[in-house]
Design a protein around this nucleic acid. Structure first.
Length: 358
DNA sequence: AACTCGGGGCA
DNA sequence: TGCCCAGAGTT
């Protein structure tokens, strides 16, 4: 009997999973919705290898959703430190508390209720619904976009509204309703292992006989994205103001990067300046608020590449000779810094500070 | 519909 | 460098 391209796709994908998939992960094959949900939040826009140690630490600290919901915010952010996209952490905590308060600690089991939780969109709702409850919802992530775009030769931009609808409908059509969990696992594993972004293994691909992109030699150009990234440069000067055993920090707020993480006294400049220019600047005078100090040293410039920004950071170490009163900043003992969450640039600085690069 | 949110791995 | 990663929320 002759299979249609869509039937062939689903059948071969499940066959590949049975025969060749050896990708092992602690959240694969389990049914605990809490663990599945936690893994999915951690893995949003994050490589499995990068997220894995975080997953292990979160499970060890918070074995159940009640444990997580009861945890202090700062402890959870500290555990998330270094993983990026910190709104995920904030929303994850909110969702855990939603589950305890609204659902009496029982994870909701329908797609709609799952997606109503903070930080859960179409992808994560489909993942939890299918993996934990075998509910027939197809996942649509970067892997699925890529596999479908290539196999069916679709050049609709995946970051357009129409593209998302088109791929979502196709993904749902391909899903075998009775095997949603194993199918969703299979297509994502297949995208990660065989139909990779660069140098896919077309030579030993079970789908190759019917792959449109392979026949048209468009594999490397698919999938298509329409938007191009604009990266801006920013120049951060951090004043590490110490007085006796204390240092001044604040929690970042507002509509900017690193929300809910901490930082030293920040002077952001529109362009690079030297340390001596900064020391003589009205900006520094303003923030110091008359506090007398001595200059202890200046760090090299740290560069951090984010998705939309390049951050250049330099740290100036100042010692106050009288107790400072700095608006919006709080004094904390140096030994307590490890209980606060900081962005990577600052943890790098704190790591190397003992080497005294000054 | 367009923008923004981190950090890391790889060619 | 540029691209991508088990995406989601805001404007």
């Amino acid at each position: 009997m002759k299979l249609s391209p869509k039937q062939f796709f689903t059948a071969r994908l499940l066959e590949w999973n049975r025969q060749h998939n050896t990708r092992s992960m602690p959240w694969k094959g389990i049914r605990d919705p809490y663990r599945i949900w936690l893994s999915e939040i951690i893995l949003q826009q994050t490589r499995v290898e990068q997220g894995l140690p975080y997953y292990e630490r979160f499970i060890a600290h918070y074995p159940t959703v009640r444990d997580l919901a009861a945890a202090p915010d700062e402890a959870v952010f500290r555990l998330w430190q270094g993983l990026g996209y910190y709104a995920r952490c904030k929303n994850m905590l909110a969702a855990a508390r939603q589950i305890v308060q609204t659902f009496d600690g029982r994870f909701p089991d329908t797609y709609e209720q799952i997606q109503s939780l903070k930080g859960i969109g179409p992808y994560t709702a489909a993942a939890v619904a299918s993996f934990a409850f075998n509910s027939p919802h197809a996942v649509l992530d970067g892997n699925v976009f890529r596999v479908l775009a290539r196999y069916f030769g679709i050049d609709t931009p995946t970051d357009s509204t129409g593209g998302k609808k088109q791929f979502a409908a196709l993904a749902q059509e391909l899903l075998p309703p009775e095997q949603s969990a194993i199918y969703n696992q299979s297509i994502m594993d297949f995208g990660a292992v065989v139909c990779k972004p660069q140098q896919p293994s077309c030579g030993q691909c079970l789908l190759a006989p019917a792959c449109v992109a392979l026949q048209q030699q468009t594999v490397a150009r698919l999938p298509v994205k329409s938007k191009k990234l604009v990266i801006r440069k920013r120049y951060f000067y951090y004043i590490v103001l110490e007085h006796q055993d204390q240092v001044f920090i604040r929690k970042r707020t507002g509509n900017d990067i690193w929300q809910n993480l901490h930082e030293f006294i920040l002077l952001e400049m529109p362009a690079p300046v030297t340390a001596s220019e900064l020391l003589a600047s009205p900006e520094l005078r303003g923030v110091m608020n008359g506090t007398p100090y001595t200059m202890q040293g200046a760090s090299p410039t740290f560069k951090q590449q984010l998705t939309h920004q390049t951050i250049h950071s330099q740290f100036l170490l100042l010692a106050a000779t009288r107790k400072p009163a700095i608006k919006d900043y709080m004094a904390v003992p140096r030994t307590r810094l490890n209980s606060y969450a900081f962005p990577k640039t600052i943890t790098d600085f704190l790591q190397n500070k003992s080497l005294e690069l000054f």
